[in-house]
């Protein structure tokens, strides 16, 4: 019996720890601003680069801004961008993927050539390029990241539709006399949701990663608005004097990603019986 304990424990651990982390972060993103001890943009010249203390629990940055407050607001920035990006990418990805997979033929070929060409750019590079042209702003970032990550959704959605449409219940629906639209809405779409849910969860992680990478390069969320990525970038010159400026935002990103990855694994195990031993 001992052989099975770790596996059992892991299944639960993924869900509990991952879900717990994500839930805390969501609460932080929603209520963070009302809990934050300071205004994240307010400069306190006397506390410049002050190490963590009673006044500033997690220290203050190079302008004397409270790091804890900035991290809390940063959670909201990051969370909002990730949510908007994933929603956009999933919506358009599903739309194009289902159209391509269900209509097949020329529509499918043209959509797929376009999609494959988008996939021919590494995701981050495409986002970087769009940001370079559009200039750093939140909205541009959301658009750039959605475009960069949509092709993956199109692929998965189309693949699922192609496999679902071969199922006999789709043919049964036709023989029944249902129109194509009814067939898609009632039978195809619900059966695509499992892999899409897993993908959306994973994608949350990718987007947060890319957002902070771009912000770190100065091509994402423009300062002074706090995001974990640009906090890392602005703290970099002070790495020896004030390592906490680097350690803390990075820990936040890693913890978030860990939570999302674990939750994604739990979802995958739960939704995909093939992965269950």
């Amino acid at each position: 019996m001992t052989r099975f304990l770790p596996r059992l424990a892991r299944g639960r651990a993924n869900l509990l720890i991952g879900g717990g982390i994500v839930a805390v972060l969501m609460l932080l993103a929603v209520f963070g601003p009302s809990l934050a001890p300071y205004d994240p943009l307010k400069l306190h010249l006397r506390s410049v680069l002050k190490a963590p203390s009673a006044a500033h629990l997690l220290g203050a940055d190079e302008f004397g801004r409270d790091v804890l407050s900035r991290l809390m607001y940063g959670a909201r920035t990051t969370g909002w961008i990730a949510l908007a990006t994933v929603a956009l990418a999933i919506f358009f990805g599903l739309l194009f993927g289902i159209i391509a997979g269900f209509l097949r033929g020329w529509t499918d070929r043209v959509l797929m050539i376009l999609n494959d060409s988008l996939l021919a750019f590494p995701g981050l590079l495409l986002a970087l390029f769009i940001m370079a042209i559009a200039g750093a702003s939140r909205e541009a970032l959301i658009v750039a990241l959605s475009i960069a990550y949509m092709p993956a959704v199109v692929r998965v959605a189309r693949g699922t539709v192609l496999s679902v449409r071969e199922r006999e219940y789709i043919e049964a629906s036709r023989v029944m006399g249902n129109s194509e639209l009814v067939t898609v809405v009632r039978h195809v779409l619900p059966n695509c949701m499992a892999p899409i849910t897993v993908l959306a969860t994973t994608m949350f992680g990718w987007v947060i990663l890319s957002e902070s990478a771009l912000s770190f390069l100065g091509l994402g969320v423009p300062p002074p608005a706090p995001s974990w990525g640009n906090m890392l970038a602005s703290g970099r010159p002070f790495i020896t004097q004030a390592p906490y400026l680097i350690v803390l935002p990075g820990l936040c990103i890693s913890l978030t990603l860990l939570g999302i990855n674990m939750l994604g694994d739990a979802l995958r195990d739960w939704l995909d019986p093939k992965m269950q031993a």
Binding site: S212, I239, I246, V247, G250, L257
Partner: peptide
């Protein structure tokens, strides 16, 4: 779950 740029900074540090 660890972003490369942060891991890099930590290794650098």
């Amino acid at each position: 779950s660890i972003p490369s740029f942060w891991l890099g900074l930590m290794i650098l540090l």
